[in-house]
Design a protein around this nucleic acid. Structure first.
Lengths: 279, 279
DNA sequence: ACTTGACTCTCTCGTTACGGCAGGGTTTAG
DNA sequence: CTAAACCCTGCCGTAACGAGAGAGTCAAGT
């Protein structure tokens, strides 16, 4: 019979932890004095304490450990649990390393343009599938896009809209004389069929996303930064870029505007039929 | 000006988190309505939110992030921080993998002797340096060790003792006719010089430790398990094993006894002059 | 003007696995 | 007999929010 202090020392845990395990039903002292409430433990209980520490080291929570102790699992079951844990751990490690790499890329980006002081935050995002109404046309100037939006808004009740205006740029001025613009509105739900307007569900995608604030002239800078970032992160664009006009500024006060640029990406070396020259 | 919900959506965080960041002084809304307490944010604040998420991804605490945001660090400083984090992460990963490996070894140990049902828990422990009083002699039978303990106890006041009796077995019955036993008592502090008894400080060591309960006859099983475990973990013994008699049983009720066995170890391939044949 | 639904506010509690007190009883060695 | 060393219960604090209650606000449609 050991007092709690000795038992704690032998088991390499704190007295406080032992009391906690008692309260949590993980390790019941073999005897509790009626009068003084002193706990005592028997030598053989050391084994159970060591088991608890073992499970803790694998990353199990005390609740899970309690279950395990109750069920007295076989070695095979233990190995199974261990395998799961190992897999989980490896995933976590990979995630960590990946995010570290991206952060490093971000820092390098900052170093690339130290004079500019303007460095962009670019993130990967998972986009859920969403229903859209679209009007696509070849236009000669960016201003003509307004007409496309107007057409969507004429054909579809505004009460179905969610979010703001957006556009897919299948081809832009950089790529040649043609500007192939698909004006978009996001919809709350699949609408009843509409004539004159294409309505479809955009599939889920992974995109690199960048937010641009301020005057529209600086948007090309943002694009250059985005493409540089893609290169550093071993990614390639695999479709038309999407702009979402979260805040559209009135002429004169352009500082207010907020535009999100999304480029669907896949790892370099991954071929896709939807690959776009524009990217 | 964005309402908190929109801002949260654009920044990929929860409304709750934004309120929390406000309270914590991480991200002050650009405006709070006097009457309704509604928070509003400006588009440019998105950048700061993204920074926060970036730092969080590196593993910084919100407190640290707050400092960082206040100090507006240069890219070079950021890289420094990142390097630290990366190092820390790598250490953590290695630790995790190491403990996983040990646990797997433990499971294999259990598989080795499924019939026995008796599987031992073996752990690595770091032993702090400690002062000891020792009496060492070649003896012919284990019972003679009692005499050595008696001698220590005669020569040194018992008020200096801490812990229980222990013994270093430089040579044991397995190794030949000679049993080279060093009886030990741990001391609270370095004592004044004593004649007739060797007193010295045992250095810090890493040991593999195993607790044995029950009848003394099963101790050899424990030793075999311990050596098997060392083999599986790529460790070799590098000195005399130490037994600590935490509970010494009276004859008749041997179930109560508790003996710790410690073997000082080093990674395989690591040579040492104190290497002992007995191990 | 009224309602409805979508937002928003503050406040409190819950989470994990204990650590660190305070305030008071117990054991043990000298 | 007393002092030191243990032990007890009970309460608060941790990090970073999530969940939910209960109440106030906003925008749109009737």
């Amino acid at each position: 019979m050991l007092k709690i202090g000795e038992f704690a020392q032998l088991g390499n845990v704190s007295v406080r932890a032992l009391r906690f395990y008692h309260e949590a039903g993980l390790l019941e002292p073999s005897h509790v004095d009626q009068a003084s409430n002193y706990r005592s433990y028997e030598p053989r209980q050391l084994r159970q304490l060591q088991d608890i520490r073992l499970y803790k080291a694998v990353g199990l929570s005390l609740t899970e450990i309690r279950e395990l102790l109750r069920e007295r699992p076989s070695a095979a079951e233990l190995r199974e649990i261990l395998r799961e844990r190992r897999a989980l751990l490896k995933r976590r490690i990979e995630d960590d390393l990946e995010s570290l790499a991206r952060i490093e890329a971000q820092l390098n980006a900052a170093a690339d343009s130290p004079a500019k002081q303007m460095s962009w935050r670019i993130e990967m995002r998972h986009i859920r599938p969403v229903w859209v109404a679209a009007a696509r046309e070849n236009i000669r100037s960016y201003e003509e896009a307004d007409g496309l939006f107007a057409e969507i808004e004429r054909r579809i009740g505004t009460e179905l809209f969610t979010g703001k205006r957006a556009a897919l740029w299948h081809t832009c001025a950089n790529d040649g004389p043609q500007i192939d613009c698909e004006a978009l509105r996001f919809l709350k739900r699949p609408p009843s069929p509409v004539r004159g307007i294409r309505v479809y569900e955009m599939p889920a995608t992974r995109v690199a996303s960048l937010f641009h604030t301020g005057a529209d002239q600086t948007i090309p800078h943002a694009y250059r930064a985005l493409h540089a970032w893609l290169g550093r992160n071993g990614l390639v664009s695999r479709g038309p870029k999407c702009e979402i006009y979260w805040i559209e500024s009135d002429k004169g006060k352009e500082g207010e505007s907020l535009t999100e640029i999304r480029v669907p990406v896949s790892p370099r070396g991954c071929r896709s039929r939807t690959q776009n020259r524009a990217a």
